[in-house]
Nucleic acid binder design. Sequence first.
DNA 1: CTCTGTGAAATTTTTCACAGCG
DNA 2: CGCTGTGAAAAATTTCACAGAG
Lengths: 193, 193
Amino acid sequence: MLEIADQDVTTASSEQLAELAGVNAAKVRKDLSYLGTYGTRGVGYMVGELVDEIAAELGLTHDWPVAIVGLGNLGHALANYRGFGARGFRVVALVDTDAAKVGRRLGELTIESLDALDAIVAARDVAIGVIAVPAAAAQEVADRLVAAGVGSILNFAPTVVTVPEHVTLRKVDLATELQILSFYQQHRTPTPV
Amino acid sequence: MLEIADQDVTTASSEQLAELAGVNAAKVRKDLSYLGTYGTRGVGYMVGELVDEIAAELGLTHDWPVAIVGLGNLGHALANYRGFGARGFRVVALVDTDAAKVGRRLGELTIESLDALDAIVAARDVAIGVIAVPAAAAQEVADRLVAAGVGSILNFAPTVVTVPEHVTLRKVDLATELQILSFYQQHRTPTPV
DNA sequence: CTCTGTGAAATTTTTCACAGCG
DNA sequence: CGCTGTGAAAAATTTCACAGAG
Protein backbone atom coordinates (compact mmCIF):
# COMPACT_ATOMS: atom_id res chain seq x y z
CA MET A 1 0.00 0.00 0.00
CA LEU A 2 2.75 2.42 0.87
CA GLU A 3 4.77 1.45 -2.18
CA ILE A 4 1.73 2.02 -4.34
CA ALA A 5 1.02 5.39 -2.82
CA ASP A 6 4.58 6.49 -3.44
CA GLN A 7 5.30 5.21 -6.90
CA ASP A 8 2.10 4.46 -8.65
CA VAL A 9 -0.54 7.04 -7.92
CA THR A 10 -1.49 7.26 -11.58
CA THR A 11 -3.35 3.94 -11.68
CA ALA A 12 -5.58 2.01 -9.29
CA SER A 13 -7.09 -1.45 -9.54
CA SER A 14 -10.75 -2.14 -8.99
CA GLU A 15 -9.70 -3.97 -5.85
CA GLN A 16 -8.07 -0.87 -4.42
CA LEU A 17 -10.98 1.36 -5.37
CA ALA A 18 -13.37 -1.14 -3.82
CA GLU A 19 -11.43 -1.09 -0.58
CA LEU A 20 -11.55 2.70 -0.45
CA ALA A 21 -15.26 2.77 -1.14
CA GLY A 22 -15.99 -0.16 1.16
CA VAL A 23 -17.67 -2.22 -1.54
CA ASN A 24 -17.16 -5.26 -3.71
CA ALA A 25 -14.53 -5.11 -6.48
CA ALA A 26 -16.91 -6.55 -9.06
CA LYS A 27 -19.34 -3.75 -8.32
CA VAL A 28 -16.69 -1.15 -8.97
CA ARG A 29 -15.89 -2.71 -12.32
CA LYS A 30 -19.53 -3.01 -13.32
CA ASP A 31 -20.30 0.56 -12.32
CA LEU A 32 -17.29 1.97 -14.10
CA SER A 33 -18.09 -0.08 -17.18
CA TYR A 34 -21.23 2.03 -17.63
CA LEU A 35 -19.05 5.05 -18.23
CA GLY A 36 -17.31 3.21 -21.04
CA THR A 37 -13.97 1.49 -21.12
CA TYR A 38 -11.58 3.45 -18.99
CA GLY A 39 -9.58 0.62 -17.43
CA THR A 40 -6.54 -1.11 -18.81
CA ARG A 41 -6.52 -4.89 -18.44
CA GLY A 42 -3.64 -6.18 -16.43
CA VAL A 43 -3.03 -2.69 -15.02
CA GLY A 44 -6.09 -0.98 -13.58
CA TYR A 45 -7.72 2.41 -14.01
CA MET A 46 -5.92 5.64 -14.82
CA VAL A 47 -6.95 7.74 -11.84
CA GLY A 48 -6.76 11.06 -13.65
CA GLU A 49 -8.80 9.95 -16.61
CA LEU A 50 -11.35 8.37 -14.30
CA VAL A 51 -11.75 11.49 -12.20
CA ASP A 52 -12.32 13.58 -15.31
CA GLU A 53 -14.87 11.19 -16.70
CA ILE A 54 -16.81 10.96 -13.45
CA ALA A 55 -16.72 14.72 -13.05
CA ALA A 56 -18.16 15.14 -16.53
CA GLU A 57 -20.87 12.57 -15.88
CA LEU A 58 -21.84 14.22 -12.61
CA GLY A 59 -22.03 17.70 -14.08
CA LEU A 60 -18.98 18.99 -12.26
CA THR A 61 -17.52 20.39 -15.43
CA HIS A 62 -20.34 22.86 -15.54
CA ASP A 63 -20.24 25.94 -13.41
CA TRP A 64 -23.55 26.23 -11.60
CA PRO A 65 -24.56 29.68 -10.35
CA VAL A 66 -26.18 29.43 -6.92
CA ALA A 67 -28.26 31.99 -5.03
CA ILE A 68 -28.64 31.75 -1.26
CA VAL A 69 -31.85 33.19 0.18
CA GLY A 70 -31.86 33.97 3.88
CA LEU A 71 -28.71 35.07 5.67
CA GLY A 72 -29.27 33.96 9.21
CA ASN A 73 -26.67 31.70 10.75
CA LEU A 74 -27.25 28.90 8.28
CA GLY A 75 -27.15 31.22 5.31
CA HIS A 76 -23.88 32.68 6.55
CA ALA A 77 -22.47 29.21 7.07
CA LEU A 78 -23.40 28.26 3.53
CA ALA A 79 -22.06 31.51 2.10
CA ASN A 80 -18.72 30.88 3.80
CA TYR A 81 -18.65 27.19 3.04
CA ARG A 82 -15.33 26.30 1.49
CA GLY A 83 -15.54 23.73 -1.21
CA PHE A 84 -18.62 24.68 -3.18
CA GLY A 85 -16.21 26.18 -5.65
CA ALA A 86 -14.17 23.01 -5.91
CA ARG A 87 -17.30 21.09 -6.80
CA GLY A 88 -18.44 23.35 -9.57
CA PHE A 89 -20.80 25.65 -7.67
CA ARG A 90 -20.45 29.40 -7.57
CA VAL A 91 -22.47 31.47 -5.12
CA VAL A 92 -23.47 34.46 -7.22
CA ALA A 93 -26.07 36.09 -5.01
CA LEU A 94 -27.05 36.49 -1.37
CA VAL A 95 -30.64 37.55 -0.83
CA ASP A 96 -32.61 38.47 2.28
CA THR A 97 -35.85 40.28 3.11
CA ASP A 98 -34.44 42.01 6.16
CA ALA A 99 -33.76 45.62 5.17
CA ALA A 100 -31.13 45.84 7.90
CA LYS A 101 -29.12 43.09 6.21
CA VAL A 102 -29.49 44.31 2.63
CA GLY A 103 -26.40 46.17 1.51
CA ARG A 104 -24.10 44.45 3.98
CA ARG A 105 -21.02 42.88 2.44
CA LEU A 106 -20.16 39.25 2.99
CA GLY A 107 -16.94 38.15 1.38
CA GLU A 108 -17.10 39.14 -2.26
CA LEU A 109 -20.85 39.60 -2.37
CA THR A 110 -23.32 42.14 -1.10
CA ILE A 111 -26.64 41.07 0.38
CA GLU A 112 -29.50 42.07 -1.91
CA SER A 113 -33.23 42.45 -1.47
CA LEU A 114 -35.62 39.62 -2.23
CA ASP A 115 -37.54 42.06 -4.39
CA ALA A 116 -34.63 42.11 -6.81
CA LEU A 117 -34.70 38.35 -7.20
CA ASP A 118 -36.18 38.25 -10.70
CA ALA A 119 -33.54 40.59 -12.05
CA ILE A 120 -30.74 38.77 -10.23
CA VAL A 121 -31.76 35.35 -11.48
CA ALA A 122 -32.10 36.58 -15.04
CA ALA A 123 -28.87 38.58 -15.07
CA ARG A 124 -26.67 35.96 -13.39
CA ASP A 125 -28.38 32.94 -14.83
CA VAL A 126 -29.01 31.40 -11.41
CA ALA A 127 -29.62 27.66 -11.74
CA ILE A 128 -30.00 26.66 -8.11
CA GLY A 129 -31.72 28.46 -5.27
CA VAL A 130 -30.91 27.62 -1.66
CA ILE A 131 -33.59 28.31 0.94
CA ALA A 132 -32.08 29.13 4.33
CA VAL A 133 -34.94 31.12 5.83
CA PRO A 134 -37.20 30.27 8.79
CA ALA A 135 -39.83 27.62 8.14
CA ALA A 136 -42.63 30.16 8.03
CA ALA A 137 -41.11 31.98 5.06
CA ALA A 138 -39.93 28.95 3.10
CA GLN A 139 -42.94 28.48 0.83
CA GLU A 140 -43.03 32.16 -0.06
CA VAL A 141 -39.34 32.09 -0.99
CA ALA A 142 -39.80 28.90 -2.99
CA ASP A 143 -42.64 30.52 -4.95
CA ARG A 144 -40.50 33.55 -5.66
CA LEU A 145 -37.59 31.41 -6.81
CA VAL A 146 -39.86 29.45 -9.12
CA ALA A 147 -41.42 32.64 -10.49
CA ALA A 148 -37.94 34.01 -11.13
CA GLY A 149 -37.17 30.96 -13.22
CA VAL A 150 -34.87 28.93 -10.97
CA GLY A 151 -34.96 25.27 -12.00
CA SER A 152 -33.63 23.60 -8.84
CA ILE A 153 -34.21 24.35 -5.19
CA LEU A 154 -32.44 23.09 -2.10
CA ASN A 155 -34.55 23.61 1.01
CA PHE A 156 -32.90 23.75 4.44
CA ALA A 157 -35.99 25.03 6.23
CA PRO A 158 -37.61 22.40 8.44
CA THR A 159 -40.89 22.40 6.56
CA VAL A 160 -42.40 20.89 3.44
CA VAL A 161 -42.60 23.21 0.46
CA THR A 162 -44.31 22.39 -2.81
CA VAL A 163 -43.15 23.42 -6.26
CA PRO A 164 -44.45 22.85 -9.80
CA GLU A 165 -43.65 19.60 -11.55
CA HIS A 166 -40.87 21.03 -13.68
CA VAL A 167 -38.83 22.32 -10.74
CA THR A 168 -36.47 19.95 -8.95
CA LEU A 169 -36.69 20.17 -5.18
CA ARG A 170 -34.56 18.64 -2.47
CA LYS A 171 -34.88 19.03 1.25
CA VAL A 172 -32.02 18.82 3.72
CA ASP A 173 -33.19 18.04 7.19
CA LEU A 174 -30.45 18.42 9.75
CA ALA A 175 -32.42 16.46 12.32
CA THR A 176 -32.67 13.48 9.99
CA GLU A 177 -28.95 12.90 10.14
CA LEU A 178 -29.02 12.84 13.92
CA GLN A 179 -31.93 10.48 13.72
CA ILE A 180 -30.00 8.05 11.59
CA LEU A 181 -27.16 8.14 14.09
CA SER A 182 -29.41 7.50 17.04
CA PHE A 183 -31.03 4.68 15.12
CA TYR A 184 -27.69 2.96 14.72
CA GLN A 185 -26.78 3.67 18.31
CA GLN A 186 -30.01 2.13 19.49
CA HIS A 187 -29.57 -0.95 17.33
CA ARG A 188 -25.83 -1.21 17.93
CA THR A 189 -25.08 -1.88 14.29
CA PRO A 190 -21.85 -0.57 12.79
CA THR A 191 -22.44 2.25 10.33
CA PRO A 192 -22.51 1.09 6.72
CA VAL A 193 -20.11 3.08 4.54
CA MET B 1 -59.64 14.23 -0.11
CA LEU B 2 -61.14 17.30 1.52
CA GLU B 3 -63.80 15.26 3.27
CA ILE B 4 -61.16 12.93 4.59
CA ALA B 5 -59.03 15.76 5.90
CA ASP B 6 -62.00 17.22 7.70
CA GLN B 7 -63.70 14.24 9.21
CA ASP B 8 -61.37 11.32 9.26
CA VAL B 9 -57.86 12.36 10.21
CA THR B 10 -57.55 9.48 12.63
CA THR B 11 -57.08 6.80 9.99
CA ALA B 12 -55.32 6.57 6.65
CA SER B 13 -55.26 3.82 4.06
CA SER B 14 -52.04 2.44 2.62
CA GLU B 15 -53.10 4.06 -0.64
CA GLN B 16 -53.18 7.50 0.94
CA LEU B 17 -49.89 7.00 2.75
CA ALA B 18 -48.33 5.79 -0.49
CA GLU B 19 -49.50 8.91 -2.28
CA LEU B 20 -47.98 11.13 0.39
CA ALA B 21 -44.69 9.27 0.30
CA GLY B 22 -44.66 8.98 -3.47
CA VAL B 23 -44.38 5.19 -3.47
CA ASN B 24 -46.36 2.07 -4.19
CA ALA B 25 -49.21 1.14 -1.83
CA ALA B 26 -48.05 -2.47 -1.59
CA LYS B 27 -44.65 -1.27 -0.39
CA VAL B 28 -46.25 0.77 2.36
CA ARG B 29 -48.19 -2.25 3.57
CA LYS B 30 -45.15 -4.53 3.42
CA ASP B 31 -42.97 -2.04 5.25
CA LEU B 32 -45.53 -1.41 7.95
CA SER B 33 -46.11 -5.12 8.35
CA TYR B 34 -42.55 -5.41 9.69
CA LEU B 35 -43.59 -3.30 12.65
CA GLY B 36 -46.34 -5.76 13.42
CA THR B 37 -50.03 -5.50 12.78
CA TYR B 38 -51.14 -1.93 13.20
CA GLY B 39 -53.68 -1.64 10.42
CA THR B 40 -57.34 -2.47 10.55
CA ARG B 41 -58.69 -4.38 7.56
CA GLY B 42 -61.39 -2.57 5.72
CA VAL B 43 -60.40 0.69 7.43
CA GLY B 44 -56.73 1.55 7.25
CA TYR B 45 -54.08 2.56 9.75
CA MET B 46 -54.70 4.50 12.93
CA VAL B 47 -52.45 7.49 12.34
CA GLY B 48 -51.77 8.15 15.99
CA GLU B 49 -50.85 4.58 16.80
CA LEU B 50 -48.68 4.38 13.72
CA VAL B 51 -46.75 7.54 14.57
CA ASP B 52 -46.07 6.26 18.07
CA GLU B 53 -44.89 2.90 16.83
CA ILE B 54 -42.59 4.38 14.20
CA ALA B 55 -41.22 6.86 16.73
CA ALA B 56 -40.42 4.00 19.10
CA GLU B 57 -38.75 1.98 16.35
CA LEU B 58 -36.66 4.95 15.27
CA GLY B 59 -35.52 5.77 18.76
CA LEU B 60 -37.49 8.99 19.00
CA THR B 61 -38.89 8.06 22.36
CA HIS B 62 -35.42 8.30 23.79
CA ASP B 63 -34.04 11.67 24.63
CA TRP B 64 -30.59 11.92 23.08
CA PRO B 65 -28.20 14.44 24.61
CA VAL B 66 -26.20 16.19 21.88
CA ALA B 67 -23.05 18.27 22.13
CA ILE B 68 -22.12 20.74 19.40
CA VAL B 69 -18.42 21.41 18.96
CA GLY B 70 -17.47 24.57 17.07
CA LEU B 71 -19.63 27.68 17.19
CA GLY B 72 -18.93 29.40 13.95
CA ASN B 73 -21.87 30.16 11.70
CA LEU B 74 -22.80 26.54 11.22
CA GLY B 75 -22.54 25.76 14.90
CA HIS B 76 -24.80 28.70 15.67
CA ALA B 77 -27.26 27.60 13.05
CA LEU B 78 -27.37 24.13 14.55
CA ALA B 79 -27.66 25.47 18.08
CA ASN B 80 -30.64 27.58 17.05
CA TYR B 81 -32.17 24.93 14.87
CA ARG B 82 -35.82 24.54 15.78
CA GLY B 83 -37.04 21.02 15.71
CA PHE B 84 -34.21 19.01 17.20
CA GLY B 85 -36.29 18.98 20.34
CA ALA B 86 -39.37 17.73 18.56
CA ARG B 87 -37.40 14.81 17.23
CA GLY B 88 -35.97 13.66 20.50
CA PHE B 89 -32.65 15.48 20.52
CA ARG B 90 -31.58 17.83 23.25
CA VAL B 91 -28.55 20.04 22.78
CA VAL B 92 -26.90 19.89 26.20
CA ALA B 93 -23.53 21.47 25.47
CA LEU B 94 -21.85 24.00 23.17
CA VAL B 95 -18.10 23.66 23.00
CA ASP B 96 -15.43 25.73 21.28
CA THR B 97 -11.65 26.16 21.50
CA ASP B 98 -11.78 29.90 20.99
CA ALA B 99 -11.24 31.52 24.39
CA ALA B 100 -13.08 34.60 23.17
CA LYS B 101 -16.23 32.54 22.63
CA VAL B 102 -16.06 30.53 25.84
CA GLY B 103 -18.41 31.92 28.47
CA ARG B 104 -20.70 33.56 25.93
CA ARG B 105 -24.37 32.69 26.32
CA LEU B 106 -26.40 31.29 23.46
CA GLY B 107 -30.03 30.70 24.27
CA GLU B 108 -30.15 28.56 27.38
CA LEU B 109 -26.57 27.36 27.16
CA THR B 110 -23.16 28.84 27.76
CA ILE B 111 -20.25 28.05 25.44
CA GLU B 112 -17.67 25.91 27.21
CA SER B 113 -14.04 25.06 26.56
CA LEU B 114 -13.02 21.99 24.60
CA ASP B 115 -10.75 21.11 27.52
CA ALA B 116 -13.80 20.48 29.67
CA LEU B 117 -15.20 17.99 27.15
CA ASP B 118 -14.50 14.84 29.17
CA ALA B 119 -16.29 16.19 32.20
CA ILE B 120 -19.21 17.50 30.12
CA VAL B 121 -19.74 14.22 28.30
CA ALA B 122 -19.59 12.23 31.51
CA ALA B 123 -21.82 14.54 33.51
CA ARG B 124 -24.49 15.08 30.86
CA ASP B 125 -24.29 11.65 29.34
CA VAL B 126 -23.69 13.01 25.82
CA ALA B 127 -24.55 10.38 23.21
CA ILE B 128 -23.93 12.31 20.01
CA GLY B 129 -21.21 14.79 19.14
CA VAL B 130 -21.65 17.21 16.27
CA ILE B 131 -18.48 18.51 14.61
CA ALA B 132 -18.98 22.01 13.19
CA VAL B 133 -15.38 23.20 13.19
CA PRO B 134 -13.11 24.03 10.22
CA ALA B 135 -11.78 21.03 8.29
CA ALA B 136 -8.31 21.40 9.77
CA ALA B 137 -9.55 20.85 13.32
CA ALA B 138 -12.08 18.11 12.59
CA GLN B 139 -9.90 15.07 13.26
CA GLU B 140 -8.63 16.52 16.51
CA VAL B 141 -12.17 17.18 17.69
CA ALA B 142 -13.26 13.70 16.64
CA ASP B 143 -10.43 12.15 18.64
CA ARG B 144 -11.40 14.19 21.67
CA LEU B 145 -15.04 13.19 21.37
CA VAL B 146 -14.08 9.53 21.11
CA ALA B 147 -11.72 9.82 24.08
CA ALA B 148 -14.51 11.43 26.08
CA GLY B 149 -16.70 8.42 25.36
CA VAL B 150 -19.14 9.74 22.77
CA GLY B 151 -20.59 6.85 20.78
CA SER B 152 -21.87 8.66 17.68
CA ILE B 153 -20.42 11.54 15.69
CA LEU B 154 -21.96 13.71 13.01
CA ASN B 155 -19.31 15.48 10.97
CA PHE B 156 -20.17 18.66 9.08
CA ALA B 157 -16.55 19.57 8.30
CA PRO B 158 -15.66 19.06 4.65
CA THR B 159 -12.98 16.47 5.36
CA VAL B 160 -12.69 12.78 6.09
CA VAL B 161 -12.18 11.88 9.73
CA THR B 162 -11.50 8.40 11.02
CA VAL B 163 -12.76 6.91 14.25
CA PRO B 164 -12.42 3.54 15.97
CA GLU B 165 -14.64 0.67 14.90
CA HIS B 166 -17.05 0.99 17.83
CA VAL B 167 -17.93 4.62 17.14
CA THR B 168 -20.63 5.42 14.62
CA LEU B 169 -19.68 8.19 12.24
CA ARG B 170 -21.72 10.06 9.66
CA LYS B 171 -20.65 12.88 7.42
CA VAL B 172 -22.91 15.61 6.08
CA ASP B 173 -21.53 17.22 2.99
CA LEU B 174 -23.49 20.31 2.03
CA ALA B 175 -21.99 20.32 -1.46
CA THR B 176 -23.24 16.81 -2.13
CA GLU B 177 -26.83 17.95 -1.99
CA LEU B 178 -26.18 20.64 -4.56
CA GLN B 179 -24.42 18.07 -6.67
CA ILE B 180 -27.44 15.81 -6.67
CA LEU B 181 -29.60 18.74 -7.76
CA SER B 182 -27.29 19.70 -10.58
CA PHE B 183 -27.16 16.08 -11.66
CA TYR B 184 -30.92 16.02 -12.06
CA GLN B 185 -30.89 19.39 -13.77
CA GLN B 186 -28.33 18.17 -16.23
CA HIS B 187 -30.23 14.99 -16.96
CA ARG B 188 -33.67 16.63 -16.90
CA THR B 189 -35.16 13.86 -14.83
CA PRO B 190 -37.86 14.67 -12.29
CA THR B 191 -36.66 14.27 -8.72
CA PRO B 192 -37.56 10.91 -7.21
CA VAL B 193 -39.30 11.05 -3.82
C1' DC C 1 0.50 -13.08 -15.49
C1' DT C 2 -2.68 -9.50 -13.80
C1' DC C 3 -6.74 -7.19 -13.86
C1' DT C 4 -10.70 -5.69 -16.76
C1' DG C 5 -15.28 -6.35 -18.75
C1' DT C 6 -19.24 -9.00 -18.64
C1' DG C 7 -22.53 -13.00 -19.03
C1' DA C 8 -24.78 -15.79 -15.66
C1' DA C 9 -26.12 -16.86 -10.85
C1' DA C 10 -27.51 -15.32 -6.42
C1' DT C 11 -29.66 -12.12 -3.64
C1' DT C 12 -32.45 -8.29 -2.48
C1' DT C 13 -36.12 -5.19 -3.36
C1' DT C 14 -40.42 -4.05 -5.36
C1' DT C 15 -44.74 -5.12 -7.28
C1' DC C 16 -48.65 -8.00 -8.07
C1' DA C 17 -52.68 -10.20 -6.70
C1' DC C 18 -55.72 -12.21 -3.70
C1' DA C 19 -57.42 -14.73 0.56
C1' DG C 20 -59.67 -13.34 4.39
C1' DC C 21 -60.50 -10.08 8.54
C1' DG C 22 -63.42 -6.57 10.42
C1' DC D 1 -67.54 -4.42 0.95
C1' DG D 2 -62.77 -2.10 1.59
C1' DC D 3 -58.41 -2.60 2.85
C1' DT D 4 -54.78 -5.23 5.21
C1' DG D 5 -51.26 -8.77 5.34
C1' DT D 6 -48.60 -11.74 2.70
C1' DG D 7 -47.15 -15.55 -0.47
C1' DA D 8 -45.53 -15.63 -5.10
C1' DA D 9 -43.87 -13.26 -9.37
C1' DA D 10 -41.17 -9.71 -11.40
C1' DA D 11 -37.55 -6.50 -11.47
C1' DA D 12 -33.39 -4.60 -9.98
C1' DT D 13 -29.09 -4.99 -7.78
C1' DT D 14 -25.02 -7.36 -6.30
C1' DT D 15 -21.82 -11.01 -6.55
C1' DC D 16 -19.48 -14.71 -8.82
C1' DA D 17 -16.42 -16.47 -12.02
C1' DC D 18 -13.90 -16.55 -16.05
C1' DA D 19 -12.59 -15.52 -20.97
C1' DG D 20 -9.46 -12.73 -22.90
C1' DA D 21 -6.92 -8.06 -23.49
C1' DG D 22 -2.65 -5.95 -22.62
